[in-house]
Amino acid sequence: MPQPSWFNRLSIFAGLAFLYLPIVVLVVYSFNASRLVTVWGGFSTEWYAAAINNQSIVEGAKISFLVAATSATFATALGSLAAIVAVRIRRFRGHHIFNGMLVAPMVMPEVVMGVSMLLMFVTLGIDRGPVTITLAHATFTMCFAAVVMQSRLAELDPSLEEAARDLGCPPFLAFVKVAVPNMLPAFVSAWLLSFTLSLDDLVLSSFTTGPGASTLPMKIYSQIKFGVTPEVNAISTIILGVVVFGLVASRIVSRPSAKSTVAV
C-alpha cells in the first residue's frame, strides 16, 4: 500500500476532528469537577452520581428505554414481514411502489412525519403519551429494520426452504425451521438498530408526546434551555455509550462471516 501523503493525513485528521471533537469534548467535560461547563476543575464522577439521583432524568430514561424496546420489537416484526414480501414475492402488482414507500420514511423530513402523526392521533382521539411515541417510533424505525432484513433475506438461498420441503417439511414449517434460524442475526441487528434510533429521537417524540411523558432526549433538551450543566454532559455520555454499544453489536451480529467462524 502506498504511504498517504501529508495532505491525506491532514485531511483525515481534520475530517475526523470535525466529526468527533465535539463528542470528545462532551465526554471529557462530563468528568469535570467544576460546576462551570467550560472551565476544567479536575477529574470527578460526581455528575454521573447527580444524574443517576435526578428523579426527573431517571424517569425520562425509563420511558425512553421502554419506548425504544417496544417500538424496536414492533419495527422488527413489521419490517421482517415487509422484507419477506419484497424479497420472496418480488413481482406483484405495484412492487415498485411498495419498495419505494417502504424506504421513503428514511428520507422523509421528521417534522412532516411528526405533524402528520400528531394530526392523526388527534383526529382519532388517542390520548398522547408513551403509547403514541412508541407507535410513531415503530413507524419510522420499521423502514430501517426492513432494509436490514431485506439484505439478509436476499442472501439466503431460496432453495434452502425448497430442500426442507423436499425432505418432508410443509411450507410454513420449512420457513420456521430453515429460514428463521438463518435470519436470527438479522433479527437481532434490526432490533438493535431500531432501538438506538428510537432512543435518541427528539423531533418525533416531541410531536407525539402528551403531558407527563417526556423521553430522555426531551428532558435533556428542556434542561439546556436553562444552560448546559455538567450533568447533561454525563447523561449524554451514558446515552452515547448505549448507542455505540447498540450499533457495534448490530454490526457484529449482522456480519456474514460471524457464522462461519463458529468453532467445530
Binding site: 438461498d157 432453495s159 434452502l160 425448497e162 430442500a163 426442507a164 420441503r165 423436499d166 425432505l167 418432508g168 417439511c169 410443509p170 411450507p171 420449512a174 430453515v178 434460524p181 438463518n182 457464522k259
Partner: peptide
C-alpha cells in the same frame, strides 16, 4: 401432491445444505 408428500428427493444445484 405437494413436494413434501412426494416420494421423490432432490439434490439441488447449490446443494442447499442447511448452514445452521
Amino acid at each position: 401432491v405437494p413436494a413434501h408428500r412426494r416420494a421423490t428427493n432432490m439434490m439441488f444445484q447449490s446443494y442447499a445444505l442447511f448452514p445452521h
